[in-house]
């Protein structure tokens, strides 16, 4: 019988990720995700309906403010639909980054008692939020039908932008989860960071309302191009390709940065947490 040999050595600061190993732990990933989903709405009266209620209420408040007091030009669709489409993505990013950053610290007993690729923990938090995102999508479709938004073939591209948002949420989530093990400052800094991120993203306003000279800085935020592309796909408006390309590049950069940081800190998790 051929047995697998494992070598245990001091950390050497390597920057490889063993994807095969993470794959071999996919069942743990599955169960951790399932646990997160099952546990989240336990002992709540309306349970998973919160997934629909949260974006709906937020969209209602935004609509009240931005279609009554302040008005945006050229958004192409009714403002509530416009707002809801952005809010769905933003709430997903917000909850999954919040959940993921606390995931390692919240699972201290797993980290100090069992070996597994640590990346699984923040990723499972993100995946549990993906489930919420998918559950809330029918709401968006219903609201779109209600406001008689025409569907075009470009809607087929919409999932690509969801995936882009998921990668961003996962990357930022794993970055903060690792930093949080070492620096509990993250707990205090995170709400602030997320607030700024939301304001810097075209959640409740269109990117077109950003003055031309700030557009490039604005585009560095990967979520900006993602939300814009997502809306273009949903509403059949033209894609702003340079904008989307910048979003892809910065997503990739953040992902690489996050994975490297995570790998670098991973070896000391059990000692420091």
């Amino acid at each position: 019988m051929q047995l697998h040999t494992t070598t245990i050595e001091p950390p050497r600061g390597r920057f490889d990720i063993d994807l095969a190993e993470i794959w071999s732990y996919r069942e743990l990933l599955y169960f951790l995700t399932l646990r997160d989903i099952k546990v989240r709405y336990k002992q709540t009266a309306i349970g998973v309906f919160w997934v629909i209620l949260q974006p709906l209420l937020t969209a209602a408040i935004f609509s009240l403010i931005f279609s009554t007091f302040v008005r945006f030009e050229s958004i192409g669709v009714a403002y509530p639909v416009f707002a809801l489409s952005g809010i769905l993505l933003w709430l997903f990013v917000f909850t999954s980054v919040t959940m993921a950053s606390n995931s390692l610290v919240g699972n201290t007993n797993l980290v100090t008692k069992i070996y597994f690729p640590r990346l699984i923990v923040p990723i499972s938090s993100t995946l549990a939020c993906v489930f919420d995102l998918l559950v809330s999508l029918p709401l968006l479709i219903a609201i779109m039908l209600f406001y008689r938004v025409g569907f075009s073939a470009s809607i087929l591209a919409a999932p690509l932008f969801l995936i882009l948002a998921i990668i961003q949420a996962a990357a930022i989530g794993m970055l903060f989860s690792a930093l949080n093990v070492r620096f509990r400052d993250i707990k205090f800094a995170l709400p602030f960071v997320l607030q700024i991120w939301m304001i810097a993203s075209p959640v409740f306003y269109p990117a077109s309302s950003i003055p031309e000279k700030f557009r490039l800085i604005f585009a560095i935020n990967p979520l900006a191009g993602t939300i814009e592309g997502w809306r273009a796909a949903l509403f059949g408006t033209p894609f702003d390709w340079p904008f989307i390309a910048i979003a892809c590049i910065s997503t990739l950069t953040i992902l690489i940065l996050a994975v490297l940081t995570f790998r670098q800190m991973e070896d000391s998790f059990a000692d420091v947490i």
Binding site: I8, P10, I114
Partner: peptide
């Protein structure tokens, strides 16, 4: 260390 929770 042997369970790979921490590194030597």
């Amino acid at each position: 260390i042997l369970s790979r929770i921490t590194r030597p």
